[in-house]
Design a protein around this nucleic acid. Structure first.
Length: 594
RNA sequence: CGGGGCGUGGCGCAGCUUGGUAGCGCGGGUGCUUUGGGAGCACUAGGUCGUAGGUUCGAAUCCUAUCGCCCCGACCA
């Protein structure tokens, strides 16, 4: 392609709306244009990247027997009502754009396609003989994100590859899940990306096992924990580990400790020379369920550790038939006054009485007490005395009786031990989630009544898996991982062009003639070449070539008269002077090595 | 939604405190010179100062409302 065939909209200054490097470079290089918050146009250069990624995905998925199709984006509300997700996805902080047609029928703009694909499977699958199979599509998804961010990283409209597999048994699903996992590793490797697969919570989509694929980058929104050896990796919501050892606490003769105005763990430790690991922190939460019941929670954890809301959510969700809707820390004065008698905030202890909950409160009248292992393992500890300006020394948990749940509700963190016998400690990094695979099981096939006749002739719900890749996000994550002070350094596999051809002075007829013949020859050899045929000074073209990140550059310059040209890699690792005759062969050779 | 910041030519910004009718750099156009890392000179086009009200003889500037954008939290590919 010739540069003059489309406006190369590179900018000299970085637009102020972008914060992270990859977003700045996308805007500065003219790859994307913002149309509204979280909504972007993919300019020709960007579309080429998206298409390259798409082809890599398609090739790899076709290899394991998946079939590409294209599903509608406008979904009737009925399907989403059947799966039970319509309300959650449209009301309150719901993420689905929705609208009504002229007949006043409700539709949603698809944020994901489990409903539609399960409906279709329910129509076409009759027998186990038709299973297994896997459909996928690459298409625009819509999500009314609470806060769109960082350009394509979290857009309200984004390109996603989503795949759905259908199986006659759980075992078959698990087998295929493993095949898909390998396939994902191939895809990301073929895109030239370094990724880390981590165990994940399956979240709103639901189901059993799930794994996320992360591009490690400081600007990442997710925290991941892993061991140096690679023996373990998980995102922070899911990670399980053992905390570092507590500092031993000496015995106290009296149990009550006067701690005036020392509300935070830091305060108490500083004034009384305690270590945070000797304190038990008590935090109160409120869980609201679909059946309108409200359950107050009393969570106890070691003072140097923090609560993992996802773990608490999953734990509490299991305690009731009704679905858990929200979980939040109780901190508003209004809420506390309305439901509790004199809560000594800052001095709460694990033995806080149930009687504190007012009789006319809408809450259930008993604390659900959850003690994290880290707290329960302390034989002696300091905690609040449930009395303003006092803490207390505890030398056992006997007081709690059997009125509690001991569980893991703790955020793992860097420095934790993997398990009892391991000397391996966890490291922490930030990551960008670019892929996620789930074993859905029968969640959607049950709701949407998708069944097949099994070998015994009995009807059974189809077993399903689902597999996503954020294509547009992947493209930006690739920049986050591959750039320098001059611009983007695309991995050659997904670069919009493999090589850019620059004549330093096109007005020189010798250069022009040689550049044109090279351009023609490269095209004939099916090489993705961008010919910068603008009437610009060499410096401008070099700067733009660096900015838009093309991995190789051919320079036709002063030595054109001797048919000599230069082949240089974006990284400058390869710098060759060679005759134009051997150029194509040499280029094919060098670019293969990358 | 809560907290913070910002809207002035395509991009980056100044002007606003102390009202007097808009300016700088880059970019664009034309011409000449230049030509291996964002050239020089000259000329030139381009702005209802986000929008709507209000105060005032007069508003980019003061007041009110409203819209949009970005950042920090809850959401996720």
């Amino acid at each position: 392609m010739r540069v003059t065939s489309f406006p190369l909209a590179t900018l000299r200054d970085t637009p102020s709306e972008a914060e992270i490097t990859s977003h700045q470079l996308l805007l500065k290089g003219g790859f994307i244009k913002r149309v509204s918050s979280g909504i972007y146009a993919y300019m020709p250069l960007m579309l080429r990247v998206i298409e390259k990624i798409s082809h890599i995905i398609e090739k790899e998925l076709n290899k394991i027997g998946c079939s590409k199709l294209l599903l509608p984006q406008l979904h009737p509300s009925e399907l989403w009502k059947k799966s039970g997700r319509w309300e959650g996805y449209t009301e309150g902080e719901g993420i689905m754009f929705n609208l009504k047609d002229r007949q006043d029928r409700s539709f949603g703009l698809a944020p994901t396609h489990e409903e539609v694909i399960t409906y279709i499977a329910s129509e076409i699958v009759k027998s186990y003989k038709q299973l297994p199979f896997c459909f996928y599509q690459i298409q625009t998804k819509f999500r009314d994100e609470i806060r769109p961010r960082f350009g394509l990283m979290r857009g309200r409209e984004f390109i996603m590859k989503d795949g759905y597999s259908f199986h006659s048994s759980k075992e078959d699903l698990i087998d295929f899940y493993k095949i898909m996992e390998k396939s994902y590793e191939n895809i990301f490797e073929n895109c030239g990306l370094k990724t880390l697969g981590v165990e994940a919570d399956s979240g709103a989509i639901g189901g059993a096992a799930s794994k996320e694929f992360m591009v490690t980058a400081d600007s990442g929104e997710d925290s991941i924990l892993f061991t140096k050896s690679g023996s373990y990796s998980a995102n922070i919501e899911k990670a399980i580990s053992l905390p570092s050892k507590e500092k031993p606490l000496k015995n106290f003769s009296k149990s009550l400790i006067h701690t005036p105005n020392q509300k935070s763990i830091q305060d108490i430790c500083k004034t009384n020379n305690f270590d945070p690991s000797q304190i038990v922190k008590v935090i109160i939460y409120l869980a609201k369920f679909e059946d309108k019941s409200e359950v107050p929670l009393l969570l106890c954890i070691r003072g140097d550790q923090s609560i993992n809301d996802v773990k608490v959510f999953n734990l509490i969700d299991k305690t009731k038939q009704s679905n858990l809707l929200t979980l939040s820390i109780i901190e508003s004065d209004l809420e506390i006054k309305k439901n509790l008698n004199e809560l000594p905030l800052g001095f709460i202890g694990p033995d806080l009485k149930d009687q504190l909950i007012k009789k006319n409160s809408s809450w259930e009248k008993k604390w659900v007490r959850i003690v994290d292992h880290s707290a329960y393992n302390l034989s002696k500890f300091i905690s609040g005395a449930n009395k303003v300006d006092f803490h207390k020394f505890f030398n056992s948990w006997k007081f709690i009786g059997d009125n509690y749940i001991e569980a893991d509700i703790r955020n793992s963190k860097a420095g934790d031990y993997l398990d009892k016998d391991s000397s391996e400690i966890l490291l922490e990094a930030k990551g960008i989630e670019i892929g996620h695979i789930f074993q859905l099981g029968q969640k959607y096939s049950k709701k949407l009544d998708a069944k097949f006749s099994n070998q015994k002739g009995l009807l059974e719900n189809i077993w399903m898996g689902c597999y996503g890749i954020g294509v547009s996000r992947l493209a930006q994550a690739a920049i986050e991982q591959n750039h320098d002070e001059n611009g983007i350094c695309w991995p050659i596999q997904i670069s919009p062009f493999k090589v850019v051809l620059i004549a330093t002075n096109l007005k020189d007829p010798i250069q022009e003639k040689l550049a044109l013949s090279i351009y023609k020859e490269m095209q004939e050899n099916n090489i993705d070449v961008l010919f910068d045929d603008r009437d610009e000074r060499a410096g401008v073209k070099f700067k733009d070539a660096d900015l838009i990140g093309i991995p190789f550059r051919i320079i036709v310059g002063r030595d054109a008269i001797d048919n000599q040209v230069e082949l240089i890699s974006r990284s400058k690792e390869i710098q060759l002077k060679l005759s134009s005759k051997e150029l194509v062969e040499k280029f094919l050779n060098e670019s293969k090595l990358m």
